[in-house]
């Protein structure tokens, strides 16, 4: 294809996006569009799958059967999200095994928040309320993103995430209605998860390398700082309502701007965790790689069995 032809195609492509048309897997797309989508969607899928681990810690120790069942169901939803995000990714011509390789080798990233430890039951509440809350803010705009399979997956993901967020908040409500020990547990969880949740919405706009291109492709509709502000404005009243204190002495309502002012985020901590030196980066990767390696003989057996079955059927047909 000549350069001119490619330029033509690119122009038509950008025009389709501008008209809010969906791009489907078999449509022509610029290589960069394909790569950017593989990167973002796989990062999202990896986050779902790695995100199962910190919550999985509490399945065996959930305080009641009702909570245990709800937690299991929630983590199962996350596995399901991982599954269809990987499938959506595969429509762009990359296999799930390749995507796993990228995760296991450290080439692909996942959300840094899952590198923090879950050390009390209240962390299950905080994760649902804050982490899923922040995820929703990030993801709702993606229901209208330009790549069809991603947009459709997001519609379902967001519905379930919003249920998880309410479930997490409800855990916090219950703790705040409980004994002094329970209230302390809830406050402690908020103290530990608040700042990482703010960081979860990404680096400040000036340092966000992918924002501009992603905005054009509707892979992003608001900047990181806008999303962060939205998250804070939405979450602070929820905390106050149940008697929790946001661990930020500089947090103050700004009448003029109509939103909260907040204190400085420790970006050194953020980059430390992103670069692989957070409290649980090694544990999370070991768990993922370990499960994959321990499962190899199982997957091999499934393939061998399926081949034997197929051969038998062919022999029968002959």
């Amino acid at each position: 294809m000549s350069e001119e032809q490619i330029k033509d195609l690119e122009e038509q492509f950008e025009a389709r996006i501008a008209r809010d048309e969906k791009i489907e897997p078999k449509d022509w797309m610029p290589e960069k569009y394909r790569k950017t989508h593989i990167r973002q969607m796989s990062q999202h899928a990896h986050s779902e799958v790695v995100g199962m681990l910190p919550e999985g810690n509490w399945i065996t120790r959930a305080p009641s059967l009702r909570r245990k069942v709800a937690l299991l169901a929630k983590i199962q939803d996350e596995a399901g999200h991982g599954l269809y995000l990987y499938s959506a990714c595969e429509t762009l011509g990359i296999s799930r095994d390749e995507l796993y390789d990228q995760l296991h080798s450290g080439k692909a990233k996942y959300s840094s928040i899952f590198n923090y430890p879950t050390i009390t039951w209240a962390d299950m509440g905080a994760i649902g309320w804050l982490v899923d809350g922040a995820a929703i803010i990030n993801q709702v705009p993606l229901c209208n993103t330009s790549f069809g399979p991603y947009a459709r997956a997001m519609v379902r993901v967001c519905k379930e995430e919003s249920f998880h967020q309410r479930q997490g908040y409800e855990i916090m409500i219950k703790l705040m209605q409980g004994t002094p020990e329970q209230k302390e547990m809830a406050q402690d969880a908020l103290n530990r998860w608040w700042w990482p949740s703010l960081m979860m919405l990404g680096p400040i706009d000036a340092e966000s390398v992918h924002t501009e291109q992603s905005m054009k492709w509707k892979l992003k509709r608001k900047s990181n700082d806008e999303l962060r502000q939205q998250f804070i404005d939405q979450t602070v009243p929820q905390a106050e309502l149940i008697g929790l204190t946001i661990p930020d002495p500089d947090l103050k309502w700004n009448d003029e701007k109509g939103c909260y002012d907040f204190g400085a985020i420790d970006w050194d901590e953020f980059w430390q965790v992103v670069k692989g030196h957070g409290p649980c980066n090694k544990e999370r990767m070991n768990a993922r790689v370990g499960a994959w390696e321990r499962g190899e003989w199982v997957r091999d057996a499934a393939v061998a069995y399926a081949e034997k079955k197929a051969n038998k059927n062919i022999n029968k047909a002959v």
Binding site: V49, M52, L53, G56, I59, T60, L65, K68, V69, L72, A73, I75, Q76, A79, G80, G82, L83, Y86, A287, G290, A291, W292, R294, G295, E296, V298, R299
Partner: peptide, 26 residues
């Protein structure tokens, strides 16, 4: 079975194992 959630040989068996665990708790 709940102990295994997130540690299965692949996502499909992980989901199925969790499903069975959920049924049994129910």
């Amino acid at each position: 079975l709940g102990e295994l959630c997130g540690h299965g040989p692949n996502l499909e068996t992980d989901i199925a194992g969790t499903n069975i665990s959920l049924d049994l708790f129910g």
